[in-house]
């Protein structure tokens, strides 16, 4: 399915990354699991941003999902989580556009100490909705191949992004952001990856 699940803006500090704003679309997820999936997506955004060096782009393919990251030279970072059919080029165009607009609205000096609840940037939600259809989005931005010169590094799974010796399972187990329920969700979801099964 051509779909965007999550669009977030983070600030990459010297040791950890902090969320500045995020928008999610979890229509397809069952009602009682939306909370867990949301938490988990945020966790992924943070994990990936922390492992991307400044002034670079990465795209990580994990199963049926794609995670696109762009960290600017001034440490402002954007993440898009989409499915594998959504065109990569459009995702990265979206990131550039959203980060530009964000830095115009909110002064860069305040980024390190901002908290998510204090940030007013409602455009993010409308961008997430508008870009669900990449065709319309492309007409809107009129950017065909105007991506900057930054090379996009492509990874075939999330393990390739992690530092040497790290494992996703361990990171999940150690994480303080994930509640007990989200951790239980992670362990069961790993077992039942239904897209590849006949049943």
């Amino acid at each position: 399915m051509v779909k965007l699940y999550c669009l977030s803006i983070l600030y990459k500090g010297p040791t950890t990354a902090t969320w500045l704003k995020s928008a999610v679309d979890l229509q397809g997820v069952s009602f009682f699991q939306r909370g867990s999936v949301h938490e988990f997506m945020q966790f992924c955004c943070k994990t990936v941003v922390e492992r991307t060096i400044a002034a670079s782009r990465q795209s990580v393919k994990q199963g049926e999902y794609f995670c696109h990251v762009y960290v600017r030279a001034d440490n402002l970072a954007g993440v898009v989580i989409s499915d594998h059919e959504y065109p990569q080029r459009v995702s990265h165009t979206l990131l550039t556009k959203v980060l530009d607009e964000f830095s115009e609205k909110i002064p860069s000096s305040s980024w390190p100490n901002l908290q998510e609840k204090d940030v007013t940037f409602p455009q993010l939600t409308s961008y997430l909705a508008k870009y669900q259809n990449p065709r319309e989005a492309d007409v809107l931005t009129k950017i065909q191949s105007e991506l900057d010169e930054t090379q996009i590094i492509l990874h075939s799974n999330i393990q390739a992004v992690l530092n040497r010796g790290e494992k996703l399972d361990d990171l999940v187990a150690k994480s303080e952001e994930l509640g007990i329920q989200s951790k239980a969700f992670y362990t069961t979801a790993r077992k039942t990856n239904s897209c590849c099964n006949f049943n």
Partner: peptide, 29 residues
């Protein structure tokens, strides 16, 4: 609207495992 089984570790809260909220039905695992 839908039914789902919600993964949980164990029965820590001692309440009914049937979840029902705005036309969604769930059962704790």
């Amino acid at each position: 609207e839908d039914f789902t089984i919600v993964p949980t570790e164990d029965n820590s809260k001692n309440k009914s495992p049937v979840l029902y909220e705005s036309h969604h039905l769930g059962l704790e695992s």
